[in-house]
Design a protein around this nucleic acid. Sequence first.
DNA 1: TTAATTGATTGTAATATTGCGATGAATAAG
DNA 2: CTTATTCATCGCAATATTACAATCAATTAA
Lengths: 109, 109
Amino acid sequence: MGLTKAEIFTEKQNKLAQMMKALAHPARIAIIQHLLKAQACICGDLVEELGLAQATISQHLKELKTVGLIQGTIEGTSVCYCIDPKVWKQFRAAFDTFFEPYFNKDTCC
Amino acid sequence: MGLTKAEIFTEKQNKLAQMMKALAHPARIAIIQHLLKAQACICGDLVEELGLAQATISQHLKELKTVGLIQGTIEGTSVCYCIDPKVWKQFRAAFDTFFEPYFNKDTCC
DNA sequence: TTAATTGATTGTAATATTGCGATGAATAAG
DNA sequence: CTTATTCATCGCAATATTACAATCAATTAA
């Protein structure tokens, strides 16, 4: 196995899990945080900022791009990355919806 | 390799990534959602609710317990699970803090 | 006591993830 | 044209994750 049984869950559950997974690595958290601060930056900046090899950064950027959270535009020989505002808001909304339905009760089983 | 280089990131980045990872699987999303609805339930209910084997559910419960998001109390031969309100709020606060610093700009690179 | 129920744990197989060196493609600089 | 720069991609090795059957421990029911 080692393969998630996606077919037994709802579309929403799979999507939300996928969003979480996209951010489930400190390097990707760090990349997003840097993009939040810098507004936009090239791949090389991230390689210096974090202490990971260029190939590794490129791979993390690809995962973030796959879920649509960031986008990159080629500028000559370098690539400029930035957060996609629309997808960012979608993420935030989905996370909010997930955390919302908690009716405050401090007692448990 | 296959091992995250946690030492090059901040405590906060590692913690947040860990929180995301705890929820980065549809089964664990589904478990939490069921606990939100049912308030509390035993392991066997989850095995029926989701279509996964008991051992698999038990493993996912363990991961959620490890990050403190849920707790289980033994009731005879069964175990009753519920969400820990304190940790739940911590999660929500951490997620909020992460998503907050986005100054709305619809133009990108 | 004996048998049944419940859930944790162990072991195993399959797949995914992480990280990086090496290489390749594209553009810029000389 | 040649070289340098920048980043993506490929391939590899190590580790992690997912899923489950089998088993174990604890409790309850008979």
